[in-house]
Simulated scan of single mutants.
Amino acid sequence: MSRIYPYAGFWRRAVALLVDSLIIGIISSILYITVLGTQVFKLIVQNPQTSDPKNILSIMGSMILFQILAFIFFWLYFALQESSKSQATLGKRVMGLKVVGADGGRISFGRATGRTLGKLVSNMTLYFGYYMAGFTKKRQALHDLMADTFVVQHAFQTGDEKPALNFSTGGLIASILAAILPVVFIALMMLVGIVAAFKETENINVDNMNSILVRSKAVSAQANLFLLAIDEDKEVPSSDENGISYSKTVNGYQAVFSDDAGNRFVLREKKGEYDACCAEGNCELIQIDPCK
């Protein structure tokens, strides 16, 4: 009798899981819209100042209900189908696979439930529990080992020879890479985000510092212009320690200074009016009214 190797390989199982995940995702989305969609929409369109706090509690309750219903659907989707006559979910049927017990036969609903709950443990291992199907001798994932089940080709029948496969070094490497690459990708994305955030913070800090220095110069210039206007006999300084230059004009006095970026600002004080106005530069930046 020819030797039969019925155990499903990693990639066929991966495609089957992808199909099942798409189906579960679509149903879960419909369930989410049904349970939460209307309430979330109402909360969005309401004025936050007049909205009833009870609405928030209602949404939290609905979210809990959604999580419970989603878990029940996840459990029954796998447990009912894998313990049925087909012994397979829709994804496994597409890939020509089915789930069997240690005796090669159909598993009970209780064992299928245990296998489904074991998937939660596989999820907690950053999905490495799934990748184990790529290198274990009987191509078992972690939840298969926990439930003592196997995923085999659909043509397999009870009594067919079920020899253990050789340990797959290539499968181990592929599984490790499949487990590591998403983590590496996420880590790189986080690193890029952190670097971008630091650069943005640096730019913001530089801009804030420049803004503070410019406003400080404007306040100093405004004060000196007031003093010059009050005491006309006072000598007009050509410049001060802040790099502000002063001059006397026909209508009063003028102060000129620049920021670190080289932008020029001019403040003018008219004779007989003890108030300075912004004649040139970003008046909004130095918080002084523009001259009329």
Rank of each mutant, 00 (worst) to 15 (best):
P182D: 05
Q153K: 14
K199S: 14
D160C: 07
S216M: 10
K234S: 05
Q157T: 12
A164Q: 07
E161D: 14
A187W: 11
F198W: 14
G159M: 04
A174K: 07
I180V: 15
S168K: 06
V151G: 01
G171K: 00
F198M: 14
A197Q: 11
A196Y: 13
D144W: 03
M190Q: 07
K217P: 00
L172R: 01
H143Y: 04
V184M: 13
E241V: 06
L177I: 10
L228N: 00
I176P: 00
R215K: 12
H154C: 06
A174M: 13
Q153S: 10
E161W: 05
A155N: 13
L228V: 00
L228T: 01
I212G: 03
A196C: 07
E202F: 13
H143N: 03
I186F: 10
D144R: 02
A155P: 01
E241N: 05
N203T: 08
V219I: 12
A221N: 00
T169C: 04
A223L: 15
A164R: 10
V195C: 09
N166S: 15
D240M: 01
A218N: 06
E202A: 14
I194Q: 11
A218F: 05
P237G: 07
G193W: 07
K217E: 00
D144L: 02
T169W: 12
A174W: 05
K234M: 07
K234H: 02
R215P: 01
L225C: 02
G193K: 08
V195I: 15
D231Q: 15
L181R: 06
V219G: 02
T149Y: 04
Q222V: 06
S175M: 01
T158N: 08
L145P: 02
S239T: 07
A179H: 09
V183R: 07
S216D: 11
A164Y: 09
